[in-house]
Simulated scan of single mutants.
Amino acid sequence: MTEAGFRSLYRELRRAAPGGAGPRGALATLTPARTLAALREVRSGRTVSLAAPVNTHEAPDNAEPAQHRLTAPVGGAPDPGGLQFARDRIAMNVHGDVDSHIDALCHVIYEGTLYGGVPAADVLSPDGAAALSIDLARDGIVGRGVLLDIPRLHGTRWLEPGTHVSAEDLAAAEARQGVRVGAGDILLVRVGHRRRRRELGAWDAAGARAGLHPTALRFLADRHVAVLGSDGNNDTAPSAARGVAFPVHVLAIHAMGLHLLDYLQFEELAPLCEREGRWSFVCVIAPLRLPAATGSPVNPLAIL
């Protein structure tokens, strides 16, 4: 895709943004009525985590691993007498290539602005984001989740790095799975990133990974999707758009106001959906209360 072609698609998707130009972005499509309707998806009461365990080991895709240490008892040795408390400290790069996280609307700076054309310099400082932070989702995101399994569509275990998921792939997966993505839905797209990593080992995911083609975002705009998530980064690497390293992030967050969920894991959910013969469920996303943050670690839950 040429730079001119990308800019044209950007303008098109900005005009078609699911939530209009409102301050909550596409979350505006997830109304209380749609949340209430989503609760009808629960039949068995089974819950499944959609997050990978926080990774504390350096790897080709994890140059800045999360750090976890026990801060008390000192030295890790408890005193045999009296009362003590075990305590922890965790530090992490929220937007890395391994740990499951959600991106806020202030995460993407494109040509000096944030979502809605807000000048980034007016919002961002070393103290955090004064607007469009993850605090927009402080009350949680609860709605109808739909999983589209693209490797299943193509009869493979995973998509090889560099493979693009098209709008036609998304529509074909819908038809194959007997489900339809609707307004206010939380769309989850499986590319098999987690399974490939588990079976073949880590690789430099920043340089090569499967993801959505930028034109696939038209599918999301047409369906008025509220949130997009993937078991990869959502973006393909190498990029499909000349001069734009993360075109899906730019289009989804900056143009359309979509919160993105990166590096989830669906290896428990997908077989469960297949066994039950249904690919929709209640999805509960609860970011940490980080009022000025550009994102948050997250452990979304699917309730079937």
Rank of each mutant, 00 (worst) to 15 (best):
W279Y: 08
L159G: 10
L188S: 08
P80R: 08
H68D: 13
R14T: 10
I303S: 08
L251R: 08
M92R: 15
H249M: 05
H107A: 15
A245D: 11
R275G: 02
V244I: 10
G45W: 02
A270N: 04
G201N: 05
L170R: 02
P53K: 10
A91L: 14
H213C: 11
R15H: 10
S133T: 11
T31F: 04
N233P: 08
G76V: 09
E160F: 12
A120P: 12
G229C: 09
V165Y: 04
R289V: 07
A131L: 04
D122I: 02
F219E: 07
R69D: 13
L301D: 00
D79M: 08
E268P: 04
P32S: 08
D185K: 08
N55F: 05
L136Q: 14
A16P: 04
E12V: 09
A237V: 11
R14A: 12
R223K: 10
L105M: 10
A292W: 06
A286D: 00
G112N: 09
A51P: 14
V189Q: 12
A167K: 04
I186Y: 01
R195Q: 07
A120T: 08
T236H: 10
P214I: 02
R209N: 05
I141A: 13
T294A: 13
P287T: 00
A21S: 07
R14C: 06
Q84T: 15
R69Y: 13
R194G: 05
I102A: 14
G277S: 00
M1Y: 03
V298R: 07
E41H: 13
A28G: 01
A173W: 01
L30Q: 06
T71M: 14
I109C: 14
M256I: 05
L200S: 06
L269I: 07
M256K: 12
D122C: 03
L258A: 09
R152Y: 04
R14K: 13
A172H: 02
P23L: 01
G5P: 00
A37Q: 05
R275F: 02
L39E: 01
G243A: 05
R152V: 06
F266V: 02
G211W: 04
L304Q: 03
V54M: 15
I186A: 01
V146S: 09
A183P: 12
G140V: 09
R275C: 03
H57Y: 07
F219V: 07
N93K: 15
G5Y: 03
V142A: 14
S49C: 13
T47K: 11
L70E: 15
L264T: 11
G81E: 12
G117E: 07
H68M: 15
V227K: 13
W158R: 05
G5V: 01
H224I: 02
G295A: 00
G182Y: 00
R138N: 15
G140F: 12
A21N: 03
G20S: 03
